[in-house]
Structures are given as C-alpha cells and as structure tokens.
C-alpha cells in the first residue's frame, strides 16, 4: 500500500492543522491516520501511543496552543480605546519553554478572563498551588454570563498566561499544569 514517491509531498502543514481541527471538533478519543510514509496520531490522552509505535507523540494540545494566539494587531493606530490583542502582551508567554509533560488548559470560547469569583475575592488559584481535576481555575464571561472553568487535570499550577480582566480567544492557553 505504500506509495513513497508521492505521499510525502501531499501532506502540507495546513493539512495537519485541518486534521487537528477536525479532531478537536469531534467527540473522538483518538485519531490515527497513515498515508504512505506520513503518519499522524492524535489523542486526548497524553499517555496514549499509537498501536505498534514506540515513541509517544507530542500531545495534541501543544500543537493547538501554538496557533491559537495568532491575532494580528490593528494596522492603524486605534482611534478608540481597545484591549490589546492577545499576541504580544506580557501575559502571552510563549509555549516553547514549557516542559513537554505540562498540560495546557485553554479557553473553551472567546470571553473575558477573571481569576476570582467576584471583585475583591481571593483568586481561584495561584502559581504553585495544587489542583484537582475538578478545581475551578477561573471564570470566563460572555455578556454578563459567568462560567467557571475546570482544568480537568490534577497537578500543580505552573503558569497563568492571562491577566485578570483580559479578553481571551477560543483555544488561547490560560494555564499550564504539571500533572501530579
């Protein structure tokens, strides 16, 4: 079945991105695709490995995080006061220096990020704090509707990527957690 002459040229980075998007939009647990010499394995389980393959692939969320903060700044000087775009702000520390075993918690939709349940209250979490999969980490507000976000990962909060009150976009990294 192998067609090594043609298969490698057919798979472009955009194809991989599209596959990740399809996977992410689905309710599948994992996806394993082989086309000639090209092979991709996506899984929601960071410890999963494709059948018959020795090295565990990089978890899918890391790949998604890389393309999430690609918002462009307005070209002209803004005439109106506007929140800074997600990219370039001090909070958007790059994901390059993140140890491979840390897991990202990203925004489930666009909204405003709040670290505390209400103004003046203690933050849901701080860097260094240990959390369970059910721990609430922040609020995401959409038009006065506040939704608490659970990380789904037990471990230690290693990084908080967004400042309180900032707008976040879908897929933008919010927290990195080192699994327990």
């Amino acid at each position: 079945m192998k067609t090594p002459d043609t298969a490698p040229q057919q798979v472009k980075p955009e194809d991989i991105e599209a596959l990740i998007e399809v996977f992410q939009a689905s309710d599948w647990d994992e996806m394993h695709l082989t086309m000639g010499e090209f092979e991709i394995f996506l899984s929601n389980d960071p410890n999963a490995a494709p059948q018959g393959a020795a090295p565990a692939p990089a978890p899918a969320p890391a790949a998604l995080a890389a393309s999430a903060a690609s918002a462009a700044a307005p070209g002209a000087a803004p005439a109106l006061a506007a929140p800074a775009p997600a990219a370039g702000g001090p909070a958007s520390a790059g994901a390059e220096d993140v140890p491979a075993h840390w897991q990202v918690v990203s925004a489930p939709n666009l909204g405003t990020f709040y670290r505390a349940p209400k103004p003046g209250a203690a933050n849901y979490c701080e860097v260094g704090q240990s959390v369970t999969a059910d721990s609430e980490l922040c609020l995401i507000e959409v038009m006065k509707l506040f939704t608490a976000l659970r990380g789904g990962i037990a471990g230690t909060v290693r990084r908080i990527c967004v400042a309180d009150g900032e707008m976040v976009e879908y897929g933008q990294p919010l927290f990195y957690i080192e699994p327990a």
Partner: peptide, 10 residues
C-alpha cells in the same frame, strides 16, 4: 482584517 479574534470551535 486589521484584527482577527477566534470566537469558538468550528
């Protein structure tokens, strides 16, 4: 566009 924001999934 001058700026793009990602609203949600596909």
């Amino acid at each position: 566009a001058d700026r793009v924001v990602v609203l949600g999934p596909a």
